[in-house]
Design a protein around this nucleic acid. Structure first.
Lengths: 235, 235
DNA sequence: AAGTGGTCTAGACCACAAG
DNA sequence: TTGTGGTCTAGACCACTTC
């Protein structure tokens, strides 16, 4: 389990973030990268494609591959989903578990999660801060059939990392629906805002590689501190 | 100018939307699709990849390619930006041009658009409705060096289509930053809401294939009618 | 004319699912 | 064991930019 284009993409990303290519703002040609990493040009192109989607580089036909270093600070890249903990490495991400219990899926939940009525589901409510500043209130539902065990200690960290590294499950797809609404009393209090203030909301569904839904969550973001980023090539 | 994987992707998309594959929810194997369209398997995979990104299908290794038909109604797919006119085909999209003038780029604008200070820029303010319901107030800036001419008639239609089809320019990348804020008086009035109500905001930058910015815009969306969708495979 | 990214092929082998 | 998608290769030719 070591995929060349992913490895190379990660290596190039590190090099870019370290500023190795900053002079001239231009990466080596695809051919040179292929030779340097000992792979075919197609494999290099798959690696570069990921970085294009992440917004680190931009390819111009006939001209070359250029750095973008335009990524706004502090915005959450929708393409880059490892959870907050990884997205804000360098800053202190804390998660306060406000509630954690095992419930049964009612009709609405079983529909949202594609599970049977009455299936056991972990419900986790968390308050997450970045460098101490309120960032998001999360309401998450995890299917116990896929995540057999969860406690406060795990929930206080990165649940995504737990799933990948501890449970060894592979995440396949992640869907997000982004909307705005007025804050309710409770969420407003948690975020240090007023009821009726705007909220930036992300409603998420996580799929394992085999297509099963392991996670359904609603994230109520602080509207003054969260921005989402979507950088895309045109198709 | 006819790219096989794009053509095939469009054809498959039409077939999916027509419901041709609904029985069994499964597409033919990649090999069969390759044979049917007379192309290599890699080309079919590129075509399918686009549909995965658009959220129409989901690939499961070892199992097959399945329909999703889970796309929420009325949400704007962030992967699928041909502008409102194309995204809401079937419904009536109207654009009322509230203002259109040629201005000079000030410092802030020249920075946002990557153009020189004093460059001529079209400013367009539009109110867009879907089936008569207020949907978004758009503030758009177009670099005249790339879009030499613009009038009310053009602005009342799809500016993106105008650029592609009339000017023959190729769009390369599109960046969007999504946030929430409180509505100001003017925008609230236009959207039929109250000042201080939430707004769902998309701030956009459009790049031509050669990397130049042709468009910078801020879209103030009605928070009760707009949702954005981001369906992604995990990398 | 030369350099560089974009499209496409034909085929090999691997990883996972289903019978 | 067989079917199916995932990764990878080596090479060809095209489209666009740069010189």
């Amino acid at each position: 389990m070591s995929i060349k284009y992913k490895d190379i993409s990660n290596r190039l990303e590190e090099e870019i973030l370290q500023g190795i290519y900053d002079k001239g703002d231009k990466l080596p040609t695809e051919e040179k990268l292929a030779a340097r990493h000992g792979v075919s040009r197609n494999t290099i192109r798959k690696a570069l494609e990921i970085l294009v989607r992440k917004g680190l580089i931009i390819s111009i036909q006939g001209s070359g591959v250029f750095l973008r270093h335009a990524t706004p600070q502090g915005a959450l890249n929708l393409e880059d989903f490892n959870g907050l903990t990884e997205s804000f490495s360098g800053q202190e991400v804390t998660s306060e578990v406000l509630e954690l219990k095992l419930i049964r899926a009612d009709e609405k939940l079983s529909l949202a999660m594609g599970c049977r009525l009455g299936a056991p589901i972990y419900f986790v409510k968390r308050m997450r801060r970045i460098d101490g500043v309120p960032y998001v209130v999360e309401y998450a539902y995890h299917n116990q059939e896929h995540i057999p065990y969860l406690d406060e200690k795990i929930a206080a960290g990165s649940i995504f990392r737990y799933i990948r590294e501890e449970l060894g499950k592979e995440i396949g797809y992640l869907d997000r629906e982004i909307s705005a609404a007025k804050l309710g009393e409770e969420d407003a209090r948690l975020l240090g805002l007023q009821a009726g203030d705007p909220a930036l909301i992300s409603t998420n569904r996580g799929f394992l590689k085999n297509g099963e839904i392991f996670d359904y969550s609603v994230d109520i973001h602080h509207y003054q501190t969260t921005r989402f980023l979507k950088l895309s090539d045109y198709r």
